[in-house]
């Protein structure tokens, strides 16, 4: 059985630095009062970028080739949207109840 992709340490350090930068931007953004719902949008956007970096590089999703792994990842993301979508039925529906 193959042991899978081995990334150079340099990649890990670069991604770690990017994540730290993301954290600094998150803290800085929290000190700025954006109009309307933009505070949450900005924070979630930064968090999404950071999570994507973790999944692609630290979890090696960028390098996978097995179809079954792709199915697993797509299912996991779909499951997350299922959670968010079904919870939204409640939150959106309350306005009409």
């Amino acid at each position: 059985m193959s042991i899978g992709h081995v990334s150079p340490i340099r990649t890990y350090i670069l991604i770690w630095a990017a994540l730290m930068l993301g954290t600094i931007i998150t803290v800085a953004a929290s000190m700025v009062d954006f109009p309307g719902p933009l505070n949450a949008v900005v924070a979630l956007a930064i968090a999404t970028v950071k999570a994507t970096l973790v999944v692609l590089f630290f979890m090696h999703v960028k390098y996978i080739s097995y179809k079954v792994n792709i199915i697993v990842i797509v299912s996991a993301v779909f499951w997350l949207f299922l959670l968010l979508g079904m919870v939204s039925i409640d939150y959106v529906g309350r306005a009409f109840s």
Binding site: M86, I89, D90, V92, G93, R94, F96, S97
Partner: peptide
């Protein structure tokens, strides 16, 4: 919770 969510 919303009635519509409850129905679903």
């Amino acid at each position: 919770i919303s009635l519509y969510a409850a129905l679903v």
